[in-house]
Design a protein around this nucleic acid. Sequence first.
DNA 1: CTTTCGATGATCT
DNA 2: GATCATCGAAAGG
Length: 187
Amino acid sequence: MRKLAEIDFSASSLQVARALIGVSILVDGVGGRIVETEAYDREDPASHSHIGPKPRNASMFGPPGHAYVYRSYGIHWCLNFVCRETGHGAGVLIRALEPTAGREVMRHRRGLQDDRLLCAGPGRLAQALSITSAHDGLPLDRPPFQLEPAATPVAVVCGVRIGISKAKDLPLRFGLAGSRYASRPFN
DNA sequence: CTTTCGATGATCT
DNA sequence: GATCATCGAAAGG
């Protein structure tokens, strides 16, 4: 069993995506509370793992509790947490944070003063935390990563995923109820 | 508020 | 050549 911040990363991507809401993720001490996630799995046509192991998605087929970082639209980096078991190809896309630690550093990296937009989206979040391909495959239980469980229980909402063309209607997007830091509202 | 579009590179057809 | 788990600027209502 792979437990980190009180989350069992050997569980399904759906369970992990829901459980991650409220958990804090820091990279070199900079980051915040996770307020938006999406679940992906091998059987899911929208998932990078659907086609089977390839060079790009190798980390997704690696051990749970590790990072999978990929380049999006040739410009952005996006961070996932691998779950289930080695070889399965399941992961959770971290889509938005409520910035809590190192906000001044993140404002500088993003060239923004508005904390609301610092980490509101997978590409923005990666830029704010300075995540690149260098983090692909790294374990989440050691520096530069640091995960902390939610301080108090949280209310979680659910909706359809964003920016995909296949399996559009599956309710695999999760968020912190009422958060103003999500990439888009839940409704 | 909404829609449209360009950027930019890896991967796939 | 087309698609893509995105973002930001620009244009229109």
